[in-house]
Design a protein around this nucleic acid. Sequence first.
DNA 1: GCCGTTTTCGGCCCGACTGTTTTCAGTCG
Length: 573
Amino acid sequence: MNKHQIAHILEEMADLLEISGENPFKVRAYQNAARSIDSLSEDLEELIQNNQLIEVKGIGKNIAAHVQDLLETDTFPEYEKLKKTIPAGLLECLKIPGMGAKKAKLLWKKLGVTSIEEVERACQEGKVESLQGFGKKSQEKIFQSIERSRKYEGRHLFPTVHEVAKHLLSDLRQISGVLRAELAGSLRRHTETVKDIDIVVSSASIPNVIKVFLQLPQIDQVTNKGTTKVSVILHRGINVDVRFVSEKEFPSAWHHFTGSKAHNVALRSRAKDRDMKISEYGLFHMKGKRAVPVPCKDEEVLYKKLGLDFIPPELREEMGEIEAAEKHELPVLIERADLKGCLHVHTTYSDGRGTLEEMALAAKACGLSYIGISDHSKAAHYAGGMQIADVRRQSAEIDELNAKLKGIRILKGIEVDILADGSLDYDDDVLASFEFVIASIHSRFSLSESEMTKRICTALAHPLVNILAHPTGRLLLSREPYQVNIPEVIACAAEYGKVIELNCNPRRFEIDWRWGPLMKEKGVKTVLSPDAHGPEQIANVDYGIGIGRKAWFEKKDVVNCLTVAQLLKHFSR
DNA sequence: GCCGTTTTCGGCCCGACTGTTTTCAGTCG
Ligand SMILES: Nc1nc2c(ncn2[C@H]2C[C@H](O)[C@@H](COP(=O)(O)OP(=O)(O)OP(=O)(O)O)O2)c(=O)[nH]1
Ligand SMILES: [Mg+2]
Ligand SMILES: [Mg+2]
Ligand SMILES: [Zn+2]
């Protein structure tokens, strides 16, 4: 069982405890522990072996024992016991928006329903409205909520939502009476996938602005509407939360709505320790029961009043950023302007849509001064992998283009398949003809974790390999990562001085940003790669920057911030 | 269940919205 599966069981345990009526803080303890395990940037088994699991924040003696049980036996006694008393289908019901543990339990106890379908039927048959605490309206609301969540549930890729959000934001800014409107939530924090669009708006005439906003043509339905916030669903099937505040409240509201939740909670408890209070309305000094406002003209001041350096939104995940801000040890995060070139680009020589020249010009248009071409190798039939003769032809064409083109240097590279045994898809003499070699896996995904790890480490040990690309093969929202021990791969990359890619294709966005701090600790560098299969995809790096920042990467950690001469030297070529 | 140089007990972020209630519980962000 891997840590994500373990985190999932702990989440489930929290739900079971909540339904069973346990102390809410105990429920939260399990939720916190799940979050900690999920975002752990160390190897779980190693932590357990060294008895260091209880040192992880949010994990104490009890949950540590459960985690060890889960790792060894895929379950733990308390979990089994609770599962026997609560039907599995009831947990699914908690996914219905508006349906929490209390309501689900009541429906189960009074009506015997144990699945979403049964809740739906109970609503249709009018059995819900007569229950204590329910009524006609809430019955109808539950029914609607089920229908809606079937249609609109789930997360989205970042760029899809970001495009929609930008348009919505500019429409909002044109509404008369709107002073400021900004993106918040996971979009502002640049998470790899997002659930909804969160926006904060300031205005002196909120009721009117809300009225006009709700008339925007892209809105399909309104799901919530109060005096300070509204929730809608767009025709595109994307949920939107908008919070309306006064201009004075804007900084704290923006901060609140940016999150993450865990970051907010940690910061608020820090404020409390200092006799202060944070809410979306501002920072306050507590004088007994009285809350005296502490004016904060922007987020920087807010952090400062709490004794912290400004924390960039991408880092606000409660993953060590508050401790670092206190010690003035936050990284100076990479910015788009730091990128001097890009590697990992496909052309018509394999499965790309752009010619060499088109891709080179696209990179130049993005302000880059070099572009590293890396088409697929011969084993990649699925992607028109290059035969040796193709490699020769491409090399000659690159020479011609480099003589002809100004302001962009084309580097000769390859994305060579790592075969099942860890060997590479070309002989060394062919590999030696490139200026850089990217190695990656495109076949035989279902090896065991140890086999896969060994396979990758064998490839990394090859002296001609420079970069490991997309190290888990995940496709966000569609394909699970293959099993591989990332801490071992990072250790191996450190040993051989190899680079691990941050693939900026929005469906990949990996190596996962959560491993960034471990890579930095081990001295492993990364490269922000577009993995472009067409000229417009060079711009993938624009979105990748946000993920790179989430990974705590600085300019010095990213090899395509080097000049072409420095880069080739880094690769010893 | 977790946590702690103010504490090993007694806290655990804080507020909006909805529908039900007759003053608030449940759910969510
Ligand atoms: N203080 C506090 N803030 C919260 C809480 N829940 C959510 N928030 C704030 C921080 C979140 O980033 C923000 C938006 O909530 P969302 O549910 O949309 O989550 P977020 O955008 O972070 O991620 P997601 O939408 O899932 O991609 O609201 C909470 O329980 N307490
Ligand atoms: Mg959100
Ligand atoms: Mg939201
Ligand atoms: Zn690839």
